[in-house]
Amino acid sequence: MNGEEPSLNVNLAGLKLANPMMTASGTCGYCFEYADLLDLSRLGAFVTKTITAKPRKGNEAYRIVETRGGMLNAIGLANVGLEVFLKEKLPQLRQLRASGPRIIVNIAGHDANEFAELATHVSAEDDIDAIELNVSCPNVAGGLDFGTNPDLLEPLVAKVRQSITPNINLIVKLSPNVGDICQTARAAINGGANILSMINTYTALTVDVYHRRPRLANGTGGLSGPAIRPLAVYLVNRVYQNVARQANVPIIAMGGIQYWQDAAEFILAGASALAVGTGLFINPATPTNISDQLVSWLSKLGYNHLEQAVGSLQMPTAATDTHSQ
């Protein structure tokens, strides 16, 4: 390596990050929960838990169960609600933002009006760089409707876009629980999303075979962790190739990232930024460890900027997307 280290700076359609590493919504609390184990100031961006209009208790225990290489969760969007979030959590996020990371607030509503109202309140606050729409939570009644139906998703995103200030970035988090994720990706972009994040968890079921009942109190849950990583890499590449690249919409990728190699796979597949979720539970310092190691990887490849690696995956020319067969 000659001279300077490769740059990890990321420009997500105007949202500028010092590096591509983020926390995934719902795995890092509201702000400083990991502060003594993760140097939060070194994150590219911090993504909050999903915030809803009213506080939510969430589901009964068991809310989590481990499966081979992954975990199922059915938390049920337990959160403090908008009012407490703005009053108690946002001041902490402002302190965090002053140290470097951009702030992304994840929200979910029961219907388009509630989504728009939440987004209006959140975007009225200073120091929030982006709103991420959770249109794909598999663990609440009706939570998947927007995220799986492009005809519902596009007007929802458009309504939210109209109700927020233009300088706020709008991210839509895509569900993998669809027939063709390119359709929901297009709907999100047509509605006005300028960044996509993908993927949310896979709806899944695990069974207590002696009691013949689900191991989660909710019945089904969302599968995350290394078990879904190759599935997520595939979907990121598919959306990048077919939708996002032409539309010039960057992708924030997540799904089983634990090591720098995992992050590198997503970058090559088309991701401009990366979020760590389940991996934080095992080592909260995972995002900053990966940041450090991506620099070394990029210099090995001869790149002097992360953006050069984005989507540079060399697919075999004869490769057929089995999904379209």
């Binding site: 795995t27 990991y34 225990a61 539970f281």
Partner: peptide, 12 residues
């Protein structure tokens, strides 16, 4: 049953 042990995953 818990995942993180640090108040983030809201499982326990």
């Amino acid at each position: 049953a818990m995942a993180c042990g640090m108040g983030t995953c809201q499982s326990c």
